[in-house]
């Protein structure tokens, strides 16, 4: 039961992400597209460093460890 609730929350969060992505693609979107979010992060003086480090850590954690 606990696991079902946990997985359900993850599914809801995934659906929310897909919903935001779909909403960002409409012509009058008030939500930035994912690539624009990446561009905003990649052009911030500090954020871009954190973004690259996060990408590196994610790859190492997922595939090497």
């Amino acid at each position: 039961m606990i696991a079902a609730v946990s997985y359900a929350v993850w599914v809801v969060l995934g659906v929310c992400a897909l919903g935001l992505w779909a909403r960002s693609r409409s012509s009058q979107a008030s939500v930035a597209r994912p690539a624009v979010v990446v561009e905003r992060l990649a052009t911030g003086p500090l954020l871009r460093i954190l973004l690259v480090l996060a990408w590196m850590w994610a790859g190492w954690h997922l595939f090497a460890r």
Binding site: A35, V38, E39, L41, A42, T43, R48, L51, V52, W55
Partner: peptide, 8 residues
Amino acid sequence: ILRRGARA
């Protein structure tokens, strides 16, 4: 990330 950051 690389391409977007190179634009600014």
